[in-house]
Design a protein around this nucleic acid. Structure first.
Length: 355
DNA sequence: AAGTCGGGGTG
DNA sequence: CACCCAGACTT
């Protein structure tokens, strides 16, 4: 008998009913896996429902305007996933005649699909024998076999990938993979694991040794860097000016007000000099800066201290040529924006209503 | 092999 | 506050 039989039995009894488990369509499975990368099921679920309803198949997604897809992705984070998703959709329509691949070798070549996602799609859609290794699996395996190799080290990744494939049930890789991840999500949780109800507690070595809470081991990461962002919100009564973030860095392809970054908190005088360099205001007349909103915004690798300066001005005084974009306040919700700007918008909108 | 890319839940 | 989440890409 397979040692993991209790796991599979537990899975059949306690698994969550999740929409992407009801299909064998590699396109829908891909959609769910990309959305769920580094994202908890509860957070990704509404996005999956929205995307799968809007784009029933790969052709519809490939045809969708980029701005619309970015807007739908708004709030989910790691925005390059959306860009890669669109690129892959177009490529699959052109090169694979719209038939989404479901074999590992083809999948791993696509943008945005790495070892985890290729294993997930190929096992779920084609029952290929590739073990998934995600955060859940790292945790389950490290505790089950009391493995102290750091999961974010080069050797650790190779080791866990090897072990995951060794314990993989080759007759039913799909259920095995789902069960491993479900155990990590519902029982073998990071902080308060429910070991009393774990189907594998009798064979869990770290549980018997009493060090399961110390696992998995992870090499320390460096702490977030501090950044200071000043956003210039030009308010011409009916519209404002936005620009699209480009190049590398955070919030790629999202819209925001013209911004000025500094190495520390800066005063109005220095800020004014920087604003002039933006060539946002055509007028020579000095503008009045109104500090309307400030907050700290925490990302994984950076802590942002942001200030939103509102400048009331006439429409004729604003530059509306590229890279600037004219955005009507009424239409502002059509732009894909990051959470930080969204926080400001909610505050500013509320403030306007009160005055 | 190390850095970077978000946002939100949890304790 | 620190940690983590159905990871992947870049350098």
């Amino acid at each position: 008998m397979n040692a993991l039989a209790p796991l599979y039995q537990w899975y059949n009894q306690y698994k969550r009913e999740l929409p992407w488990r009801q299909t064998n369509d590699p396109y829908l499975i891909w959609l769910s896996e990309v959305i769920l990368q580094q994202t908890r099921v509860e957070q990704g679920l509404p996005y999956y429902l929205k995307f799968s309803a809007a784009f029933k198949n790969i052709e519809q997604l490939a045809r969708a305007p980029e701005e619309k897809v970015m807007k739908m992705w708004q709030g989910l984070g790691y925005y390059s996933r959306a860009t890669n998703m669109m690129q892959t959709a177009k490529l699959v329509v052109e090169m694979h005649q719209g038939k989404f691949p479901s074999d590992y070798a083809s999948l791993i070549q696509l943008k945005g699909i790495g070892p985890y996602t290729a294993a997930a799609i190929s096992s779920f859609a084609s029952n290929e024998a590739h073990a998934v290794v995600d955060g859940n699996v790292y945790r389950v395996l490290s505790r089950l076999f009391n493995i102290k190799e750091p999961i974010n080290s080069h050797n650790g990744k190779k080791l866990f990938a090897r072990i995951a494939n060794e314990v993989l049930n080759k007759k039913n890789p799909a259920t095995h993979n789902q069960a491993m991840m479900e155990l990590g999500a519902l029982i073998c949780k990071p902080q308060k694991p429910d070991c009393e109800n774990c189907p594998l507690r009798l064979q869990c070595i770290s549980y018997q040794e009493g060090n399961h809470l110390q696992l998995p081991i992870k090499n320390p990461k460096k702490k977030p860097v501090m950044r200071y962002l000043n956003f210039i919100v030009a308010d011409a009564v009916n519209f404002t000016i936005l620009q699209k973030r480009s190049g590398k860095g955070i919030w790629h392809n999202l819209y925001e007000p013209p911004s000025i970054e500094s190495t520390s908190i800066i005063d109005n005088k220095i800020l004014m000099a920087e604003i002039n360099k933006l060539a946002l205001f055509k007028t020579k007349k000095p503008i009045r800066l109104n500090k309307v909103y400030e907050c700290k915004h925490q990302l994984t690798h950076q802590t942002i201290y942001a200030v939103f300066w509102v400048v009331a001005c006439k429409a004729s005084s604003l530059q509306t040529k590229p890279p600037y974009v004219k955005a009507g306040w009424k239409d502002i919700s059509k732009f894909a924006v990051h959470r930080l700007f969204d926080k400001f918008l909610k505050y500013y909108n509320l403030q306007q209503q009160l005055t």
